[in-house]
């Protein structure tokens, strides 16, 4: 362990901006990808359901 304090840890020996931007950007991309997939799945299933129920309407008519 090479960090004397929390502020030393966040400073990253003066490279804090570069180090934390890298890790934050990576984390944000991954979280965004997972959320986007979540929404895509919900949309796909809603459409699937609508298509199914739409099919029923046709047979009823």
């Amino acid at each position: 362990m090479q960090w004397g304090s929390a502020s030393e840890f966040f400073a990253m020996g003066g490279y804090g901006l570069y180090v934390w931007t890298s890790f934050l950007a990576t984390a944000l991309c991954m979280v965004w990808e997972v959320l986007a997939l979540w929404r895509r799945r919900a949309a796909a299933r809603a459409e699937q359901r609508a298509a199914l129920l739409g099919g029923t309407d046709e047979t009823a008519a």
Binding site: G13, Y15, Y18, V19, S22, T26
Partner: peptide, 10 residues
Amino acid sequence: GESYRIIFVH
């Protein structure tokens, strides 16, 4: 120095 730690995601 510490900047190398970027490699853990890069």
